[in-house]
Simulated assay, not measured.
Amino acid sequence: MDAVLRGFLDAKERAAPGGELPYLTTTLRTMLTGGKRLRSVLCVYGWYAAGRPPEPLETAIHAAASLELFQVFALVHDDVMDDSDTRRGQPSAHRALAAAYTDSGGPGARAEAHGMGAAVLLGDLALVWSDELLHTAGLKPRRLAEVLPLVSEMRSEVMYGQLLDLCTTGRRPSGDVDAALHVIRYKTAKYTMERPLQIGAALAGGSPEVLEACSAFGIPLGEAFQLRDDLLGVFGDPARTGKPTLDDLREGKATVLMAHAVRNASTAQLKLLRKRVGDPDLSEQQAVLVREILEDTGAREAVETMIEERRDVALRALDAAPFTREAAACLRDVARTATVRQV
């Protein structure tokens, strides 16, 4: 996967009309390192799950690599919308590009606006290139015609999920667990697990039954994955996750974790949550009080239970799935690591 992405970017830089492109691709290359490669790996597992022989593996890997470029697009724009300072323990794209601007002699007063604008361009470029990498993967026209509707659905679902996230973030904390689950299903669950598996299976000509099994496994596991991410975003170790534990609280993210807390909070606890959650100046000391409420109301325990329940549903679906034995074994490992992870 790394070799495909590196070769693709090398070719783009060589073919560029001028020497400016590395200004963006340097940040792009940084973002393509250090990730879990979860979506592209699941795409390849989906290809194996359909039971095809390994001869066209190179084509499957090229197509799967396109998901990594799409992931960069989603992350860059997500960080712009959230105005996040870091990503994977490194400066977020708009922060890195702002720093590069001032390092090259640009006026500091313009740095933030420049960084945001350049990051939008970087995200757009990653989206366009993900499409190009898929179309040049060597797929036969029939296969490409089967894959493209799934890719289009995935892209639309991510945009819808981002819209839901944008519309619910920063509002008064709500106890609507179902609404919070609706956000994570479209922003993360389908895009992280279900669609990559389905795209991989479609690359191999998988049957409708295989594609349905990808959904039965992928959606509950994707929800469990994001629920774990929400816990790590508040209770995790930033040194391991690469993500500050104040961002979600300061932004007022409408998570399932927060919804459970609001549902079960006392009057005094609810007053504190509504005062502190969504406060951009929330201090670590104040965040400790919020975390205590998340613990005392049973919200953290409730989310742990939801993670376990969804993992079990996914594993039962996997037991009944018409997948190859090897792919099922790999996916069983993914189900465990995705739900107990600490990063």
Rank of each mutant, 00 (worst) to 15 (best):
L75S: 01
L127Y: 13
E295F: 05
A224T: 04
G108P: 00
V128Y: 13
A113S: 14
H182W: 12
G105P: 06
F70L: 15
P149F: 08
A118T: 01
K243Q: 08
M1F: 10
A265K: 04
K187Y: 12
D83E: 14
A49H: 09
A16G: 03
P22Q: 07
V343P: 01
L148T: 14
L38F: 12
M159L: 15
I61P: 07
A299R: 05
L282Q: 07
L163D: 04
D237R: 05
A180D: 09
G123A: 11
A145K: 14
T255L: 07
L315V: 13
V44R: 06
E68M: 08
E295T: 14
L57N: 08
A213N: 13
A96S: 14
H182E: 15
Y191N: 05
A321T: 02
A338E: 01
S40L: 04
D312S: 13
V262H: 02
P244Q: 03
R311L: 06
G123W: 05
P244A: 06
E223G: 06
V290G: 07
L67G: 09
G34D: 08
V303Q: 06
Q285T: 15
V177W: 02
A299W: 03
L122I: 01
E153S: 10
E58D: 15
R332H: 12
T297I: 12
S207K: 13
A335D: 00
R332L: 06
S104E: 10
M154R: 10
V147D: 07
I307R: 01
T267H: 11
R316H: 14
E209V: 01
P54V: 13
A119L: 04
P53S: 12
C214A: 13
D237Q: 03
L197Y: 11
G298A: 10
E153M: 04
Y45W: 09
R228V: 01
G34T: 07
L227D: 12
L164A: 09
A111C: 04
L197W: 12
Q342S: 11
P17S: 02
D333R: 13
G18Y: 03
P149D: 00
T255W: 08
C214S: 10
G35T: 02
L9C: 05
M159G: 09
T26L: 10
L144E: 15
R171V: 06
V334H: 02
G108M: 03
G34M: 06
T192Q: 01
L69S: 06
D83L: 10
Q90V: 08
V4H: 10
L246G: 10
H62K: 15
S266T: 15
M306P: 11
V76F: 02
K275D: 12
E58H: 14
T297S: 12
T305C: 10
A11P: 03
G7P: 10
S130L: 07
V76K: 01
V151T: 08
L32E: 06
A204K: 09
D296N: 13
D230A: 01
L203H: 10
R39Y: 00
A109W: 03
V256H: 06
F70T: 00
E58N: 08
A65S: 15
F8M: 03
A338H: 02
E146L: 14
R14A: 15
L166C: 08
Q71V: 02
D230R: 03
E308A: 14
R52T: 13
C214E: 01
V234K: 02
D247Y: 00
A64G: 07
A224H: 05
G46D: 06
A213M: 12
I61R: 11
V128I: 14
V4K: 11
L232F: 03
A335Y: 00
A268T: 11
G138I: 04
H260I: 04
E212A: 15
